[in-house]
């Protein structure tokens, strides 16, 4: 690409981002695919915690959540990457990590959330939940998917790859047109 054309492309992309916030989130999501280390992501939840994830005990309804645990090093490394990615947004955005569950491919869990506590998908307090169709699409095709939800919320989903080239999870880059500053302070 010639310099002149590149400048034109950059100017066009900037203009697009200014007029359509989803375009900017998409740019961050695309970067996230490059930056998020899927191998590290796969090491986040401990083996013991995974063993408890689907357990049910009539005498202990919190058995799964009370045993939820993560590898601190893998978690922190990935969370910091997600936090850095969120700095690429012009406004306030969160970059969340979602990981499908090998023990039940119909289910997915959010594994890392961030400071604005935004998500178009997370059911508050759920350890895991059925995989939304948009996420299935990302996991199966590697495409980035844009989702527009309530409260002028926009999420862009993008795949996270490991060293084998497998899609092992996805990131959700999310922003809200009108943030509720009191929501989720609980």
């Amino acid at each position: 690409m010639k310099p002149g054309m590149l400048m034109l492309w950059v100017a066009g992309a900037t203009l697009l981002a200014q007029t359509d916030p989803a375009a900017e989130l998409d740019r961050v999501a695309r970067t996230a695919t490059a930056m998020v280390d899927g191998d590290v992501c796969q090491r986040i939840q401990t083996k013991r915690s995974l063993e408890f994830l689907f357990k049910e005990d009539s005498r202990d309804k919190y058995v799964a959540s009370d045993n939820f645990d993560v590898d601190h090093e893998a978690y922190i490394q990935t969370k910091k990457t997600l936090m850095r990615l969120s700095k690429l947004c012009a406004g306030e955005c969160d970059v969340n990590l979602w990981m499908p569950l090998a023990a039940d491919p119909r289910q997915i869990q959010i594994l890392i959330r961030n400071v604005y506590e935004m998500s178009s998908f997370w059911q508050w307090g759920k350890l895991f939940q059925p995989t939304p169709a948009e996420m299935k699409r990302v996991l199966s095709t590697g495409e980035r998917v844009t989702v527009r939800g309530a409260s002028r919320k926009i999420s862009v989903l993008a795949p996270a790859y490991n060293s084998l080239g497998d899609i092992v999870g996805l990131v959700e880059v999310v922003a809200e047109g009108q943030r509720d500053l009191q929501e989720n302070v609980k």
Binding site: E117, L181, N184, V185, K186
Partner: peptide
């Protein structure tokens, strides 16, 4: 309590 589990702080807190 003035903050959430992800560290979001209500501006009045």
């Amino acid at each position: 309590l003035g903050y959430g589990h992800g560290g979001k702080v209500g501006p009045e807190f």
